[in-house]
Design a protein around this nucleic acid. Structure first.
Lengths: 118, 118
DNA sequence: GAAATCATATCGTACGCCCAATATATTTAA
DNA sequence: TTAAATATATTGGGCGTACGATATGATTTC
């Protein structure tokens, strides 16, 4: 069942990716996602996702005072690498071509989707 | 409700993208998706998705003999453009960074996820 | 003529994403 | 000291993706 391409949703994928950069608590994670998607996931979205990733052994959790810091496990790092390869194979052509079109139009890739509630 | 970033799932997004290249019937579409994701969507996946895209006016359908050719509508083209911008903003950094890593490793982006049943 | 293939499409089921609503506890600002 | 903000987490519902099973009709192959 858990095949090499079991990305199982873009939220989990993006979560693994962000946690590979640095460990975060739930709120920080939501803000980082909001910077990219323009909208932060609600608690009812992010916490079940983190719970599932923990259950699958891809994410670790550590309580520091009132905070709960989430970090990538070794297995999570391996799975993220597989997921990235799959992602590139599946959608790499879209990015490459659209990026080229934007470059021709004199625009950079910097523009993220503006957060609504910043 | 239908906001500018209403991608509503990667399958619909990829479908719009592929149909923007050329019109296809359901089977061709499935094969193109399989070339990228490694696995073709089943009829129970692709046809409801196409039906929904048609209902939203993003995809047109035309019967040619026993074939049903699907093509992008003008509205579909506009929505695809918005979706691409959203996609780049949300996941562009992942693609860009991983692509760079692959290039360093002397690998190209050509490698798609190998289809299981070719 | 029978069997295989192509092409289309639906049904039921399961699961992940997503939100609004609700709840608790702590900390900071008016 | 009340109010606002921070941080965590669950519940219930809707929707999109996804599969296997099932079905039909035309065309091609044996």
């Amino acid at each position: 069942m858990p095949c090499c391409c079991d990305m199982r949703g873009m939220l989990s994928f993006q979560t693994l990716w962000l946690l590979s950069k640095r460990s975060m608590n739930g709120q920080e994670l939501c803000r980082e996602i909001a910077r990219r998607k323009g909208k932060a996931p609600t608690p009812g979205t992010i916490y079940p996702a983190l719970k599932e990733l923990r259950k699958r052994g891809l994410v670790q959790m550590e309580r520091v005072g009132r905070e709960t810091r989430y970090s990538l496990s070794e297995r999570g790092r391996e799975e993220l690498d597989k997921a990235c390869r799959y992602f590139i194979g599946a959608f790499g052509d879209i990015l490459a071509e659209y990026q080229k079109a934007l470059d021709k139009g004199g625009r950079t890739l910097e523009g993220r989707n503006a957060p609504e509630n910043s």
